[in-house]
Design a protein around this nucleic acid. Structure first.
Length: 803
RNA sequence: GCCUGAGUGGCGGAAUUGGUAGACGCACAGGACUUAAAAUCCUGCGAGAAUCAACCCUCGUGCCGGUUCAAGUCCGGCCUUAGGCACCA
């Protein structure tokens, strides 16, 4: 098509000025909420990867609107975060100005691709009107005892004087300056997310997330069931351990406690080798910021001399060790060690010359431990376990746990890997945490009516000398009055993490202009929830978990209608460079969507990205393949020359037309976008074989292609003299016409295809059998052999088994 | 180490509940049209044996084994690869 860019612009303007895709809350139509993850508007512009998922969701949105749904397909900006802050520090401009510019670019690119977003609902997480409510929700967390301050170690670069994220501190060195990263204790806001472990797990049953997404969530929550056992210390005192293998408790030959835990601090007075122990504690704290895989070739640790623990089930006195493989913040910070049945304990025992007692008669353990997955479920018997000797492992497991509970030595408990959410960032470019520290009253929440607490306009964004947020330097802003007693007080200068704004944005889209609540209950009840949420695989664990936690909390305090506000969640594959590598500037394999739109048109790019492969998997870029999609659109355009004056549909085409409608509907809703295109190509090829087609034939093809290639189809449809496709209806198929009356099926002899026969759908089994037997090549293969049986699967296949 | 995907022509990929493997597209080759090129159209295109030719035959979905009349698809055991988690008791 000539002037493709002008034609695309024409239709983009049409949609804009007619507000074609604006949707209202309410009405007779059934609501349907389609969501794509809103992007971080980076300086490098829209990525072809964005185009893939936005086009896919756009196609569904466009189809469903034509099908009569009230579709909400919104877009916004997740614009807080470190890159904008770094950029601002470097160039001495306010990050909000950089963000504004980037948003302008992104929005222009999105418009040039013809996405049918309802732009009237657009917002950025950095808008005070939006983050006012993020802050308000934080106050609700605080008021319900869900937010608290705790001192935890952070990664600290002594050269940059800056707190680093785990990513920036990878390998134990600062990513920017290469200095050795240290650990520094800092008081941080935390959200009690671990309280929601079980609810977040159970809630998955009320969602329709893809299995791999659910699994990601389940793994992240990391539930394990076991027994917590009290252990007495010789000469007084006790601690507890958590184990998932109570059946091995008689095999304990030592205990290991965390060097960063509280227990060792309590015991320190009685430790005989204090110097050694303290040195090890120090060593561990340095190590914790490092990439542990590198360092952890051996099992390090020291014995805590002078203190012995008592195995609660048999009274044996065993040594206690300090080992850095035990984590202070998981379980109880102490473990029982059974080297015979745990490989890690085994290695540790070998390293430190400790005793090994086998308690399950499952084979030779002189070379390595025999672990749970190998001893459970095989009927192995217990040994060296007093009254449990001779029982099967599976039986003893329950009986030992029962005994521990009866004797009040322990109890069955669940443990979760998921920790509380560290909610403080020592950054400028984030939502300020609306808390005030008063010398008399302590931490006091801001009054809700004083929100938003707006970020100040200043010129410098460098962090302070001691790693506080840059906000700490802005005394005008920091100094304030205590809302409770009115005395001088100081604001919290930490800001919220990037995850905060994205934890509830999908609720705001339901009611984006509400200025007295974050979204009205009516609006949320109308949309009910996000019906279909698409995003990257990298966000299926954390972002989704944070968002679900946030929603569940809001539900529990009565502010949202459902405990789960997201129904279906799917994730798309990446668009890789043509070298099959992730696109990156350094590799020089980046494709800029603007260039493609300019040269080939937005529709070609959209069609290609839908056609390039399985939507849920990574796919490499191919400009040759893109050209093929351009050729397809050219062919569709040429077909207009075949349009005749006849009314209605061409009779010979009815079967394929109905089948194509059916297939496209199915494939679109099952993410089979590539086969949608292929079905359309087949339909176009079929049209092309005919001398002429009717207007309706052509209009049908344009309508079916419209969700993926909206510009060119509208243009051609207009030339046909029809009203715009986006204002029309999606075609309905006639199920009867999709059923073929005659079919070609294969005839096999001993499972090998030897012929094909034409059958009619109402042919009886005997008729089909007869037809099969008449085939020349079939006769050749069954001649002189005994027919054992003939399998006839109606409408599918005939298989003749001979001997 | 653990978890999760993936492995099908020269390439991207189809095959919806086990039922004609390779749809659709790309690349390539030959031909038509053209003064020529582009565009377009036609033909071929998994490997192999054989043949004037067509039919036809053998093998073939990472590897080994199994279930079945029938396996890319189901089961058991491996290998390779991508991503996630990583001393989680």
């Amino acid at each position: 098509m000539e002037n493709i860019n002008e034609i695309e612009k024409k239709w983009q303007n049409y949609w804009d000025s007619n507000k074609t895709f604006k949707c209202e809350n309410g009405g007779d139509k059934q609501p349907y909420y389609i969501l794509v993850e809103f992007p971080y508007p980076s300086g490098s512009g829209l990525h072809v990867g964005h185009v893939r998922s936005y086009t896919a969701q756009d196609a569904i949105a466009r189809m469903m609107r034509m099908q009569g749904y009230n579709v909400l397909y919104p877009m916004g900006w997740d614009a807080f975060g470190a890159p904008a802050e770094q950029y601002a520090i470097k160039n001495h401009i306010h990050p909000k100005d950089a963000v504004k510019e980037n948003i302008r670019t992104f929005k222009g690119q999105m418009k040039s691709l013809g996405f049918s977003f309802d732009w009237d609902r657009e917002f950025s997480t950095t808008d005070p009107d939006y983050y006012k409510w993020t802050q308000w929700q934080f106050l609700q967390f605080y008021k319900h005892g869900m937010a608290y301050k705790d001192t935890i170690p952070v990664n600290w670069c002594p050269t940059c004087k800056s707190v680093l994220s785990n990513e920036d501190a990878a390998g134990g060195v600062c990513e920017r300056c290469g200095s050795q990263v240290e650990q520094k204790e800092k008081s941080q806001w935390m959200l009690r997310m671990s309280d929601y472990s079980e609810d977040l797990l159970k809630g998955l049953d009320d969602t329709n997330f893809a299995d791999r997404v659910k699994l990601g969530q389940i793994n992240w929550i990391g539930k394990s069931t076991g027994v917590e056992v009290d252990v007495d210390i010789v000469g007084g005192g006790k601690f507890s351990i958590f184990t998932t293998c109570p059946e091995t408790i008689y095999g304990i030959t030592f205990f290991v406690i965390a060097p960063d835990g509280k227990l060792i601090k309590e015991l320190m007075d009685r430790v005989e080798n204090k110097d050694e122990v303290n040195a090890y504690i120090k060593e561990t704290s340095l190590k914790s910021s490092m990439d542990r895989t590198e360092l952890n070739k051996g099992k390090t640790g020291v014995e805590v001399k002078g203190i012995k623990a008592i195995n609660p089930v048999n009274g044996r006195e065993v040594p206690i060790f300090l080992g850095d493989f035990v984590l202070g913040d998981y379980g109880t910070g102490a473990v029982m060690a059974v080297p015979s049945h745990d490989q890690r304990d085994f290695e540790y025992a070998k390293e430190h010359n400790l005793e090994i007692i086998q308690v399950i008669d499952c084979g030779d353990i002189s070379e390595h431990a025999i672990e749970k997955q190998d001893y459970m479920g095989h009927g192995y018997k217990m040994i060296n376990s007093e009254e449990f000797d001779g029982m099967t492992v599976d039986e003893a497991r329950e009986k030992i746990a029962d005994m521990l509970e009866e004797k009040k030595l322990g109890k069955r408990v669940n443990n979760y890997k998921m920790r509380d959410w560290i909610f403080s960032r020592q950054r400028f470019w984030g939502e300020p945490i609306p808390m005030i520290n008063c010398p008399d009253c302590g931490w006091v929440p801001m009054n809700e009516e004083d929100l938003p607490l707006v970020l100040p306009d200043v010129a410098e964004y460098e962090p302070t000398e001691d790693g506080e947020s840059p906000l700490a330097n802005i005394t005008d802003w920091v100094n304030c009055k205590c809302p409770k007693c009115g005395h001088d007080a100081k604001r919290e200068t930490d800001t919220m993490p990037n995850w905060a704004g994205s934890s509830w944005y999908f609720l705001r889209f339901m009611d984006p202009h509400n200025d007295h609540e974050f979204a009205s209950m009516d609006a949320m009840k109308y949309w009910n929830r996000v019906d279909w949420y698409n995003g990257g695989m990298e966000h299926t664990a954390r972002h989704l978990l944070y968002a679900r936690f946030w929603v569940q909390f809001l539900y529990n305090i009565g502010l949202v209608p459902n405990k789960e506000m997201i129904w279906t969640r799917v994730s798309h594959g990446m668009v890789l460079g043509s070298d099959n590598q992730k696109m990156s500037k350094s590799k020089g394999n980046v494709i800029n969507p603007d260039d493609i739109v300019k040269e080939f048109g937005a529709d070609t790019l959209r069609v290609y990205e839908m056609f390039m492969g399985d939507y849920q998997m990574d796919a490499p870029w191919s400009t040759d393949s893109l050209r093929g999609c351009k050729r397809f659109l050219d062919k569709v355009e040429r077909l207009i020359n075949k349009v005749n004056d006849k009314a209605g549909f061409t009779e010979d085409l009815e079967s394929i037309q109905n089948k194509t409608i059916m297939k496209i509907e199915y494939d679109m809703t099952h993410m089979g976008y590539n086969t949608v295109i292929s079905a359309l190509m087949i339909l176009a090829n079929t049209y092309d074989e005919l001398e002429s087609i009717t207007k309706d034939d052509y209009h049908l093809l344009l309508t079916l292609l419209n969700p993926i290639a909206p510009h060119i189809t509208e243009e051609l449809n207009e030339r046909l003299g029809y009203k715009p496709i986006c204002e029309g209806e999606w075609p309905k198929y006639d199920e009867e016409k999709t059923i073929e009356t005659t079919k070609e099926i294969a005839v096999q002899v001993n499972g090998k295809v030897r012929a094909t026969i034409k059958i009619s759908i109402d042919d009886e089994e005997d008729t089909i059998k007869e037809k099969a037997m008449e085939c020349e090549n079939v006769i050749k293969h069954i001649e002189g052999k005994e027919i054992v049986k003939v399998i006839v699967i109606k409408g599918k296949i005939v298989n003749i088994v001979v001997k």
